[in-house]
Amino acid sequence: MATAATTVLIVDDHPSFRATARLLLEVEGYDVIGEAEDGEKAIVAAGELRPDLVLLDVNLPDIDGFAVARRITGEEAAPAVILTSSRDSSDFGTAVTRSGARGFISKADLSGASLAELLG
């Protein structure tokens, strides 16, 4: 685990998931510095907060999560993006790899360890 806590932005339109993910990540030593409930707010927050990691839900009410990932990772000194969904990664085919995201974790499997593994 990194010596300085990894900073995280959580993007999801369901408040119950954001709350649970925050609790889980904070317990595991991550520093959750922001939450966003849709794609537009996520892109703004990523620019302002400069997190190390964006945990990004695929199904957002406004913009598709993959498009949000492309926008965020297209910026200079972009944060790592990890996509998540209550669906399985097989539901999305190759869209994950084409979006510029580091990887995909199904919501039910979310844990500090699984994030760390993808972040490398």
Binding site: S16, A19, L24, S86, K107, A108
Partner: peptide
Amino acid sequence: LHDGAQQRLVALSLQVNLAADKLHDDPAT
């Protein structure tokens, strides 16, 4: 289903996992 019950069950699963982890070190949490 996706927005309702499925989200609840995801959150539930995460909470149960976390609770299992904390059971010995931090029973109050």
